[in-house]
């Protein structure tokens, strides 16, 4: 799925939802190997919102938004940055949060700092978020915490949707934690990681306090599970084959020694 069609799909199936971040199609295609290239994100349903980029050292900078798109250039600092859109009016406080990995000089900070930072009153914190060699994948679990005023929110409903059309509701436990089973909902799966485009997962939560409505979304990409082209059964068979081969080698060596 290209970035353009992804945005169209997100528009169509989240028409009832709060504002959210989605990857925007790049104007000029590139090989995808320039790790310092700017990344574009579209703020869907985000008219009138203000946008900030928070770096791993928790310093924030205002971001310009043009035609609903924000261009996140390299900050020269390594690790996760938070892209935060906020909007208030008519008794509704909205936020949309997305984490963007940037390459650069080591920040010296743990990503837990930026994940744990209170970026809006109501917030969905990935717990944990992916780190190097890890990513959200279909057929796996993703864990989160729902917070309000920095404290966990128990027994709240969170709406989970994907750009592939899956929908479900999950509930937070007493510690505000909830687990999402990422669905195997890719219509077409090709062999190989590079042969499949990621889809988007969106979590939406709402909470009302003292006549004020709070809405927040968290979005991230998730990928086709490699177990579609990686067979554990065959892997175990190959290990067994290697063990058998070792046994044969040892027997041959023993026989030679005995002779």
């Amino acid at each position: 799925m290209t970035g353009a069609t992804l945005v169209v799909v997100l528009f169509s199936f989240t028409s009832h939802a709060a504002m959210l971040w989605a990857p925007a199609p790049a104007k000029h295609g590139h090989g995808g190997h320039d790790r310092h290239a700017a990344k574009l994100f579209k703020l869907i349903d985000g008219q009138g919102a203000s946008v900030q980029l928070i770096n791993p050292q928790l310093k924030s900078m205002e971001m310009a938004i043009e035609q609903g798109v924000v261009k996140v250039k390299s900050t020269g600092m390594d690790n996760y940055h938070a892209l935060v859109a906020t909007r208030s009016g008519n008794g509704v406080n909205e936020s949309a949060i997305r984490y963007v990995y940037q390459f650069g000089k080591p920040s010296g900070e743990s990503p837990s700092n930026i994940m744990g930072l209170e970026k809006s009153k109501l917030e969905i914190e990935p717990s944990p978020y992916a780190r190097e060699h890890w990513r959200y994948q279909s057929g796996t679990e993703a864990r989160f915490i729902l917070r309000f005023d920095g404290k966990p929110l128990a027994n709240m409903e969170v709406e989970f949707t994907t750009s592939n059309g899956s929908e479900k509701k999950v509930k937070t436990d007493l510690a505000g934690r909830f687990v999402v089973d990422l669905p195997r909902d890719f219509a077409e799966v090709n062999a190989g990681r590079m042969a499949n485009h990621p889809a988007e997962l969106i979590l939406t939560a709402g909470h009302s306090v003292a006549g004020e409505r709070h809405l927040t979304t968290f979005s991230a990409d998730y990928h086709v599970n490699p177990d579609n082209w990686q067979s554990t059964q065959l892997g175990i068979a190959a290990v067994a084959g290697g063990s058998l081969l070792a046994g044969i080698i040892l027997l041959a060596l023993r026989r030679r020694e005995n002779r």
Partner: peptide, 21 residues
């Protein structure tokens, strides 16, 4: 695992698992 997405990945994964055995 044995990776069947390409011949190269398949060979490397067979080497890895066989060597582990």
């Amino acid at each position: 695992y044995i990776d069947t997405s390409s011949i190269g990945f398949m060979i490397l994964s067979i080497i890895a698992d066989t060597m582990f055995g």
